[in-house]
């Protein structure tokens, strides 16, 4: 790993990382993997999604474990980040149905549905 020594080397690393992100045309599935999420079954959700990615049921996406977004009442939750930078937060998921639900949203980058809690959670003003 490259040591950061000043602003210049920091920006080089940062820009490189942003560039990799930009070129990545996969969608991301962020799984709320905090204590609450795990207790509510995030582990099973992760396994179910992992299996369907391996089996090819869900294509072109990456699974990432993240912290909690605060929607405890709807745990387990996942956020789908589409390649165009938009996103949708889904809640009240079940391991048996989650691959189908996720595949449905990903097929046309859907933003509406009964699992949707919030759209584009990233708000620009605080995305410093």
């Amino acid at each position: 790993m490259k040591k950061i020594t000043d602003m210049k080397s920091y920006l080089e690393v940062k820009n490189e990382l942003s560039e990799i992100k930009k070129q990545n045309t996969n969608s991301k599935i962020l799984i709320g993997y905090g204590t609450c999420g795990i207790a509510a079954g995030a582990g099973e959700i992760y396994e179910a999604l992992e299996e369907s990615i391996i089996s090819g049921e869900i294509l072109n996406c990456e699974l990432v474990k993240v912290g909690c977004v605060g929607y405890c009442h709807a745990e387990p939750t996942i956020e789908l980040q589409y390649p165009d930078g938009t996103s949708v937060l889904l809640g009240n998921l079940h391991p048996h149905t989650v691959p189908e639900v996720v595949a449905g949203y990903l097929s046309n980058f859907k933003k509406k549905g009964k699992h949707v809690l919030e759209k584009n959670v990233t708000c620009d003003v605080t995305k410093v």
Binding site: L30, V66, E79, V121
Partner: peptide, 22 residues
Amino acid sequence: QVRIVLRNSGLINPEDIDDYIS
């Protein structure tokens, strides 16, 4: 909601520093 404290929570991989740097 205005997320300043929770700006990254649930959006980046907490186990990957590169995600934070980006």
